[in-house]
Design a protein around this nucleic acid. Structure first.
Length: 573
RNA sequence: CGGGACGUGGCGCAGCCUGGUAGCGCACCUCGUUUGGGACGAGGGGGUCGCCAGUUCGAAUCUGGCCGUCCCGACCA
């Protein structure tokens, strides 16, 4: 029973002044969410209905693959977080109780679930197992943003699988991948499943479910069937034509020219015919060493791919370090005394057609031309560059699109089980670590992504699976008029049906009612007013596209009306 | 954490430069008229101007400190 005259739906004509993202503006304007602090949000009744619809879809699909729903606490002792090494994470909220005991607010639940499994699982006969819950996550984000898109507190469905070996993990992972495909489809989102960074902590594979939209914080590289987070994407570069290489590198004077652009312009070459030298300092087992990373002049180093290639974190070298080990900044290059500094050469260069590149000469105001990798310097081939729009994968041109990460699936391996002692005895009585996977998805991000992808100048246009209500019934008559009585009757009929209906019975102007209905964005709007009595029809608007649907008979058989309405509803996206 | 901006009724803003006891639009309350796309008239209620200190006879306004919020970037296990 939902009458707007009695329902908390505080709509606003104007968006918050500081809102940028579409979903931020519209979800506040439509009365779905309200802010309490930076990255801290309340879900108002209609917004919570959307959230709960997303939750219901997720629950059904995780149950369908054998997930067992439970609930683990947000407030947790610090010890297991110390054991897994995650106590050091900056984004982890830490606190002490009155006795001085150290506690944390969980940002995810690997520690909790693994602790329990370690206590409870003894035998290979107890595996495999899938546990999950919907629970609040707390993260001290450096920068919350865009309404409900990136918050410090949010509800996540996180599930965890426990298997006896890698093969079992692969099966559990694939089962989740299937469930996630169905969740995304049922949510009515446009999405990509992309290859993702597994991070420095290992793990043998990860995918993210990305909903493309302008407010997205991630970038996705797309080419036919290929889809990857830009953090890990690989592609074939647009080729460059190189000048023929002389027998040995030749020095060219380049006074004051320290950028790729300047040197390329001076020499009349494309930027891709130069090699960009990016010196970094790697901390290898406490000892720092300088490494020279080379990418094509028109390419950029990707920090995450570089970290993977180095198996270590690195930082850009400072000018003094460059000067001491290599040469004057702005003129550095790979041609040097052999073995001095390790050179990493990006695959886009290593795989290119023959020819000579231009590089810094390690001398002030000088470059070398005709430099041939392999002949003139030794290198290790790596893939560290950012993919660019226009690159190709399997001959298909790459496009890059911003997207919201709404879910991820991750092969954890044995990192947590080993840290927390989650093991089992196999048939031979040998103790084995449990192989784990973890799988997260955010109902709030599903909701926000749906708004981002389905909005127009009038407001939200929900996919029917997520809409706060299926039908928005507008009464245009004042209390006591025959048209109001007719609207009341339609409401009573719908309220007893399988469709969720919200009834605008407020004593306000027509325009305001229509505007609110289109702002809130339920898939179908029914209007009952004086015209309805004259024509015997209920006006029907489909929110998506704001099209008029064939009207429904006002005085027909109730079952026929409900049937027709339900059929129309089911035909919607 | 670096850069930038902002903080004045529920929302959006003006006032601040040049100090004198707070204003506009929307929203809200009452009455009346309206009623198929954000109506009209009349009357009315609501703000210690983010907080603390300082300067001054007097501070929304000037000074200092703090807090909060947003945007860009860094970060995001």
């Amino acid at each position: 029973m939902t009458r707007l005259s009695e329902y908390l739906l505080p709509t606003e004509k104007e968006a918050p002044a500081d809102a940028e993202a579409i979903s931020h503006k519209l979800m506040v304007r439509a009365g779905l969410i309200r802010q309490m602090g930076a990255g801290i949000w309340t879900w108002l009744p209609a917004g919570w209905r959307v959230h709960q619809r997303a939750v219901a879809i997720i629950r059904e699909e995780i149950d369908a693959i054998g997930g067992q729903e439970m609930l683990m606490p947000v407030l947790q002792p610090a010890e297991p977080w110390r054991k897994t090494g995650r106590y050091a994470i900056d984004a982890l909220f830490k606190l002490t109780d009155r006795k001085g005991a150290e506690l944390v607010l969980a940002m995810t639940h690997e520690e909790a679930v693994t602790t329990h499994v370690a206590q409870v699982v003894r035998s290979y006969r107890d595996l495999p197992m899938t546990l999950y819950h919907f629970q609040v996550k707390e993260r001290d984000e450096a920068r919350p943003r865009a309404g409900v898109l990136r918050t410090r507190e949010f509800i996540m469905k996180d599930s965890y699988t426990f298997d006896r070996d890698l093969a079992g993990l692969e099966r559990s992972y694939d089962a989740h991948a299937g469930a996630y495909e169905r969740i995304m489809q049922r949510s009515g989102l446009r999405y990509y499943r992309v290859e993702a960074d597994v991070g420095m902590m290992g793990g043998s594979g990860a995918h993210e479910y990305m909903a493309p939209c302008p407010a997205g914080e991630n970038e996705v590289a797309l080419a036919g069937d290929y889809a990857a987070n830009l953090e890990v994407a690989s592609a074939d570069p647009v080729p460059v034509t190189l000048p023929e290489a002389p027998d040995a590198p030749e020095a060219v004077a380049t006074p004051g020219l320290t950028t790729v652009r300047d040197v390329a312009a001076e020499l009349g070459l494309p930027e891709g015919a130069l090699l960009k030298a990016y010196p970094v300092v790697v901390d290898g087992d406490g000892e720092e060493r300088l490494v020279l990373v080379l990418v094509r002049g028109d390419h950029q180093v990707n920090e995450i791919k570089l970290a993977l290639a180095l198996s270590a974190d690195s930082r850009p070298a400072q000018a003094a370090e460059i000067e001491a080990k290599l040469g004057p900044p702005g003129f550095i290059g790979p041609v040097q005394a052999p073995g001095e500094i390790e050179v990493l050469l990006d695959r886009a260069v290593a795989a290119a057609a023959p020819g000579g590149y231009v590089t810094g000469a390690n001398r002030v105001d000088e470059h070398l031309r005709g430099v041939v990798p392999g002949r003139d310097f030794a290198f290790r081939e790596v893939d560290v560059r950012n993919v660019l729009a226009g690159d190709t994968v399997g001959g298909v041109t790459v496009e890059i699109e911003p997207a919201i990460e709404v879910g991820n699936i991750f092969k954890l391996g044995t990192r947590y089980s080993e840290a927390l002692g989650a093991s089992y005895l196999d048939e031979d009585g040998r103790e084995q670590p449990i192989w784990m996977g973890s799988y997260g998805i955010g109902p709030a991000r599903i909701a926000a992504a749906a708004v981002e992808q389905n909005a127009d100048e009038h407001g939200i246009s929900w996919p029917r699976s997520l809409a706060p209500f299926d039908v928005h019934l507008v009464s245009l008559g004042k209390a006591g008029t025959p048209e109001r009585d007719a609207a009341d009757a339609v409401y009573e009929l719908l309220a007893g049906s399988a469709l969720d209906v919200v009834y605008d019975d407020r004593e306000i102007g027509t325009g305001e009612k229509f505007a609110d209905a289109e702002l809130l964005g339920c898939p179908l709007r029914l209007t009952v007013g004086r015209r309805s009595l004259e024509s015997g029809e209920i006006e029907v608007q489909i929110r998506r596209g704001r099209e008029q649907a064939p009207p429904l008979a006002l005085d027909g058989e109730p079952d026929a009306l409900l049937g027709a309405l339900h059929e129309l509803w089911r035909s919607l996206p």
